[in-house]
């Protein structure tokens, strides 16, 4: 990565730099390691875990969360939060399933799911930027409002797998070359969003806004527009997740995706996305979702009470943020020593 690194003037600076690189470049690697460790240990105890079927299940479980975590990352990076994603998923899942059960083509269902989600995100974004209402308050409010809307639409009804076309359900259950279709879709989405966030100005500007909003404004970034875009993307991806939800589970009612928001945020934070903005990648968030999904599957395979799952996820989140904080403190200490050395 750092081929053109020029020589540095002090050994202590080297140390500070190495530490900061640990934080910035190796964070995702840590999750990959945790993931491999978990899979390895589980497989050692119960070899069935690495059989094709259970790995496919694992991938399916994580896919929906990964798509939502990708969207959530965009919002978190700008130092905002989107709590409404679970309700948006419910809304989009029901609307798209309803269309399909009335014979609409699949593409229409997907597009409409995305549009519904995007519209929800647009509302969130406008309220946050132009209404100057804190994101936590806005999305907490829309969490209720969108969920209520979903209940109103369904009127308590439920759409079952029988009324959905087989081709649609295949997305959720089928495979391409042994890889679950839904996982392929999730992978494409994650990579696309990840590339956009890494390689396009608009993506980098989201980091700038979360890192130092005042400086971002001084650099001429249209911060409001960017934040709205982040919310729209998060909503649209929750919309995609809704359609995927319908195809995976077949049964959709107004409660679809209830409580997902906190799992999604957990996944992103475990994946190294800072809740205070400016730091994190879509890949990390997706890996975080995979890790959380993997814990669930491992507990099932190991016949440990699934009751431990929630506790484990919570503990993992706490460990992840404590670890990030610890590294940050080490970095500060290294820097202070460096300036001490300089003064001497």
């Amino acid at each position: 990565m750092s081929a053109s690194a020029p020589p540095v003037d002090a050994g202590s600076q080297d140390r500070a730099r190495r530490l900061s690189e640990t934080v910035f470049r190796v964070r995702e690697l840590g999750i990959v390691l945790a993931l491999l460790l978990l899979i390895g240990v589980t497989a050692a105890i119960e070899p069935r875990f690495i059989h094709l079927g259970s790995l496919q299940d694992l991938a399916r479980n994580a896919s929906i969360y990964a798509v939502m975590a990708a969207g959530q990352t965009l919002v978190l990076v700008t130092r905002n939060v989107d709590l409404s994603v679970g309700s948006v998923l419910g809304l989009s899942a029901y609307i798209s399933a309803d269309l399909l059960s009335h014979g609409s083509p699949m593409i229409v269902a997907f597009v409409l799911g995305i549009l519904v989600g995007g519209a929800c995100g647009l509302l969130n974004g406008f309220l946050v930027t132009y209404g100057r209402v804190p994101a936590l308050v806005v999305t907490l409010g829309t969490l209720y409002a969108f969920r209520g809307l979903a209940f109103l639409l369904t009127g308590g009804a439920q759409i079952n797998a029988e009324s959905l076309p087989d081709s649609f359900l295949k997305i959720g259950t089928g495979t391409v070359l042994d890889v679950p279709t839904i996982a392929i879709i999730a992978l494409v989405v994650v990579i696309a969003v990840g590339l956009a966030l890494r390689n396009f100005r608009s993506g980098r500007e989201l980091y700038a806004i979360g890192s130092n909003e005042e400086a971002a404004r001084l650099a001429g970034i249209r911060t409001s527009r960017r934040v709205v875009a982040a919310f729209v993307t998060s909503g649209a991806l929750a919309g995609v997740a809704g359609v995927l939800f319908a195809s995976r589970f077949g049964t959709v009612d107004a409660t679809a995706g209830n409580g997902y928001e906190l799992t999604v945020i957990s996944a992103a934070v475990v994946g190294g996305v800072a809740i205070n903005g400016g730091v994190g990648s879509v890949y990390g968030a997706a890996l975080g979702a995979l890790l959380l999904g993997c814990i669930t599957s491992a507990l099932i395979v190991l016949k440990i009470d699934s009751f431990w799952q929630q506790a484990a996820v919570g503990a993992l989140l706490l460990i992840a943020i404590a670890f990030d904080r610890f590294i940050g403190l080490r970095l500060d200490a290294a820097l202070r020593q460096r300036s001490a050395a300089r003064a001497a």
Binding site: M1, S2, S4, A5, P6, V8, A16, R17, L19, S20, E21, F24, L331, L335, R338, S339, R342
Partner: peptide, 10 residues
């Protein structure tokens, strides 16, 4: 180093 993060710079 143009590629390193600003956090940690003097």
């Amino acid at each position: 180093d143009a590629e390193r993060p600003v956090r940690g710079l003097s």
